[in-house]
Simulated scan of single mutants.
Amino acid sequence: MTVELGILLAIGGLIISYFAYQLNKTKEVKTDSQESAEVKAELGYIRKGVDDIRIDLKANEKQMAHLSERTTRLEESSKSAHKRLDSLELLLKELEQK
Rank of each mutant, 00 (worst) to 15 (best):
K83P: 00
Q63H: 11
A20G: 12
S77L: 11
T26A: 15
A59W: 03
S87F: 03
T72I: 12
K27N: 07
K62I: 02
R73C: 02
K25V: 03
L91V: 00
G13V: 00
Q63G: 01
L88A: 08
L74H: 06
G13E: 01
Q22A: 10
S17Q: 06
G44K: 10
A41S: 12
S68F: 02
K83E: 04
L23H: 12
L95A: 06
L57I: 03
R54T: 11
S17R: 08
Y45D: 15
D51F: 04
E75M: 06
R47P: 01
V3T: 11
A65Q: 11
L43Q: 14
D32T: 11
A10I: 04
L85A: 05
Q97L: 14
I15V: 11
A81E: 06
G44H: 01
E75F: 04
L92C: 06
L95F: 04
G44P: 05
M1V: 05
A37V: 03
R47G: 00
A20P: 03
Q22H: 08
S77R: 14
G6F: 13
L5A: 13
K62N: 10
K98V: 01
A10L: 14
E89L: 09
E61Y: 07
E76Q: 11
S68M: 07
S68T: 05
E35L: 15
R84V: 10
K79N: 08
K58G: 00
Q34L: 15
A20I: 08
I15H: 02
G49C: 04
R84N: 10
L43R: 13
E69K: 13
L92M: 11
L85H: 02
A37G: 07
L74M: 10
A81Y: 02
H82T: 05
K83F: 00
T72Y: 07
T26M: 13
E69F: 05
V29H: 10
V39S: 06
G6P: 05
D52V: 03
I55L: 10
E42G: 03
A59N: 11
V50S: 05
Q34S: 14
Q63P: 02
F19Y: 06
A65H: 04
